[in-house]
């Protein structure tokens, strides 16, 4: 029999080669992500439990907040996701369930998303070819989150740095199509 350990596959292998001068792409294959969906009237309790454990409360709509070992991000009405590096074997679903069982539904999302950080001087112009939202510094700032679409692919975009840097999250099965679009959108930069 072969090695009993199954090797994980990258969702975003096709993204890295698209990086070019003025556009860095830092793919994140190492994340553990869990959905946090508080039941009716329980958001406060959930927020307090998280604050006590991680020092972070649930962020407001369209916002993201990061601490030392966890990031909390709004993901829709009454829904959030928690994000962290997987490290050796960290699993946020396993970690959060005992903490939040009762007041919230905790759902495993680690594998559902393809994630990458786009930065550099051309990052905004390239993304503007797909995302129909205003990414200008007056309209979208570090910590802002928008759920929208690019090239008919649903994306969640978060500004993570002033360079500017944007984290893009999308459903895993679309990752290669997103790379196709990225290649098209960045062609101008490759001259």
């Amino acid at each position: 029999m072969p090695d009993p350990i199954l090797q994980p596959a990258s969702a975003v292998a096709a993204w890295t080669p698209v990086a070019t001068a003025g556009l860095s792409i830092d793919v994140r294959d190492d994340l553990t992500i869990a959905g946090i969906a508080p039941f009716r009237g329980k958001a406060q309790a959930v927020s307090e439990a998280l604050a006590e454990r991680y020092g972070l409360a649930l962020p407001a709509a369209c916002r993201r907040i990061s601490g030392d070992d966890i990031t909390l991000q709004w993901s829709g009405p009454d829904q959030w996701i928690a994000i962290a590096g997987r490290g050796a074997a960290r699993d946020l679903e396993v970690e959060l369930k005992p903490l939040l069982a009762g007041p919230a539904a905790v759902v495993e999302h680690s594998d559902a998303r393809a994630v990458g950080v786009f930065s550099g001087k051309h990052a905004r112009d390239v993304l503007a070819k797909g995302l129909p939202i205003d990414l200008h510094e007056r309209a979208f700032r570090v910590g802002d989150v928008a759920i929208t679409h690019a090239n008919h692919i649903g994306v969640t975009i978060t500004q993570t740095g002033n360079e500017p840097a944007y984290e893009i999250m999308l459903y895993r099965s679309y990752a290669d199509s997103f790379a196709d679009w990225l290649r098209h959108a960045t062609a101008e930069l490759t001259a």
Binding site: A61, C62, G76, P77, P132, I133, A146, I147, T148, H149
Partner: peptide
């Protein structure tokens, strides 16, 4: 009310 001003295509 959550996301702000968005285009019809969303």
């Amino acid at each position: 009310p959550h996301c702000g001003d968005r285009g019809l295509d969303e």
